[in-house]
Computed example of a mutant assay.
Amino acid sequence: MDIALIGGHGKVALLAAPLLVEAGHTVHSVIRNPEHAGDVEATGAQAVLSDIETLDAGGWDDLLRGRDAVVWAAGAGGGNPERTVAVDQDAAIASMDAAQRVGAERYLMVSYFGASLDHGVPEDNPFHAYAEAKARADEHLRGSELTWTILGPSGLTLEEPTGRIDLTAVESGTVSRGNVARTIVAALARPATAGKFLTYNDGEQEIGEAFDAVR
């Protein structure tokens, strides 16, 4: 597949890109800062300069035209509520709409374990803006005509990846970013993950085996 990897200089994206390339995909990693191009291209991906916060519909169409799939791994980090809404909600939704318009039918969203419109995060909690933005973006994706998968990793760590997760977890724990990168590759390779919200922690089951069991 020809993949647009949005948020290409993020920690997860930089780990996912070489795995996607190794799996035979062409990866266009979308970044805002030209100084990050070297890091991206060292993964085997092609760096694409674009500011997703300012793109209009035509700009999104141009960015995604010719791609087979979109992997959303971008995030504003939650520090600035206005920017969080602009990136995690508005830009994400704009990318979904553009993907439908230009025929990039496969869409994989990296969300988080507790993402839901019923997230229960109080408005005075700094995490509220992020929880709202992710929930609204995820809900828009579910209502689209795209072949979508939403990944819900738990708390992210910088631990070395084990290649093993718990896809049956009912409570959020932790998962290495390296394992999240591996779940991106695994989900894209398995059509049965389409239409699923898959939550997971680090665990004992090999990632491929866990995703093979998704029905």
Results as ranks from 00 to 15, higher is better:
R32M: 00
I150S: 02
V71D: 08
N125A: 10
R83M: 11
G114F: 01
D56W: 01
P153D: 00
G58W: 08
V27W: 03
V40Q: 04
A57D: 11
G44H: 09
T43M: 07
G75I: 01
A76Y: 05
G58T: 04
P122F: 00
R106H: 14
T43E: 02
Y130F: 15
G155F: 12
I31A: 13
Q89E: 15
W72H: 06
S116M: 03
D51G: 02
Q89F: 07
G59H: 01
A131K: 05
G114D: 11
A47K: 08
W72D: 10
Q46A: 12
M96F: 12
G58E: 14
K134C: 08
L55A: 05
G66S: 11
D51M: 10
V85P: 08
V70Y: 08
P81C: 07
L151Y: 06
V70K: 01
S116N: 07
D68Y: 06
T84E: 07
E132L: 04
E145T: 09
V48F: 01
D68K: 00
H119C: 04
G77K: 03
V48T: 10
L49H: 12
D118H: 12
V40K: 11
D118G: 04
L151H: 02
V30K: 00
G59P: 01
Q46V: 13
F127Y: 15
P34K: 09
A133F: 03
E35M: 08
F113H: 06
L146M: 02
G114S: 13
A94D: 01
D97N: 14
A104Y: 09
D118P: 05
E35Q: 15
Q46M: 07
D124T: 04
G114W: 01
D39Q: 13
D97M: 07
V40T: 06
H25D: 15
T43W: 00
L146T: 10
G38N: 15
D68N: 14
T84C: 07
W72G: 00
A47M: 04
I93N: 03
S111M: 03
V110A: 06
S154T: 10
P126A: 01
V121I: 09
S111F: 08
A135R: 11
G38M: 11
A23C: 10
L19P: 10
A92R: 03
D90T: 15
D61M: 06
S50T: 13
D90F: 12
A104E: 08
E82F: 10
T84L: 04
G79P: 09
V85Q: 13
V85H: 14
A99Y: 11
N125P: 00
D56T: 02
P18F: 10
A23I: 04
T26D: 15
A76D: 13
V21P: 09
M96I: 09
S154H: 11
S95Q: 08
D97W: 02
H128V: 09
M109E: 09
L117V: 05
A131D: 00
Q46R: 10
D97C: 06
T26H: 14
A69L: 09
V110P: 05
L151W: 12
D51E: 01
E105A: 15
P81L: 05
T54E: 06
E139T: 14
V87L: 12
A92T: 14
G155N: 10
S29M: 06
G152W: 00
L63A: 03
E82C: 05
G75T: 05
G143L: 12
G120S: 03
G152F: 00
